[in-house]
Amino acid sequence: DENEERIRAFALYKGIDPEKARELWERGEINKDDEEKAWREYK
């Protein structure tokens, strides 16, 4: 689903483990601007 892809995109963008990215996502600790930037680059 799209959230999974967004988490993966963010992990790649930040160079972090996707599981770590998922934890940040679930806790609401992902910066929305960074997340959008990562998503645009990923697509």
Rank of each mutant, 00 (worst) to 15 (best):
E2G: 09
D1F: 11
K20E: 14
Y13A: 06
W25T: 00
W25R: 02
L12A: 13
F10A: 05
K32M: 09
R27D: 04
A21W: 01
E19T: 09
L12K: 14
N3T: 15
R6A: 04
A9N: 04
A38K: 04
P18C: 15
R6D: 01
E4D: 12
L24I: 07
K20A: 14
Y42T: 05
D17R: 06
E5M: 10
F10N: 04
E23Y: 08
K20G: 04
G15H: 08
E4S: 08
A9F: 07
E29N: 06
I7Y: 05
E35T: 10
R40M: 13
E36D: 09
R6E: 02
D33E: 14
G28M: 04
I7A: 01
E35G: 06
D17P: 14
I7L: 08
F10K: 04
A21L: 02
E4P: 02
L12R: 11
E4H: 07
A9L: 07
A38I: 06
E4G: 07
E41S: 09
L12S: 10
L24N: 00
D17Y: 03
E5N: 06
E4K: 05
L12E: 14
R8Q: 10
D34T: 04
G15Q: 10
A38N: 02
N3I: 15
A21F: 02
K37T: 10
Y42F: 10
E4A: 12
R22H: 05
A38D: 02
A21I: 03
P18D: 08
E36R: 04
N3Q: 14
K37L: 12
E29C: 15
A11P: 06
E23D: 10
W39Y: 07
A11S: 05
E26G: 06
K37A: 14
D34A: 04
I7V: 05
L12G: 04
Y42K: 04
E23L: 13
L24S: 02
G28T: 02
E2L: 13
I7G: 00
K20V: 14
E26K: 09
E5T: 06
E29I: 07
E35F: 15
A11T: 00
K32G: 07
E41M: 11
E19Y: 07
G15Y: 01
K43D: 07
K14F: 15
Y42D: 03
K43Q: 12
Y13K: 02
A9K: 06
W39K: 04
D1W: 13
E2K: 10
Y13F: 11
F10V: 15
W25I: 10
E23P: 00
Y42S: 04
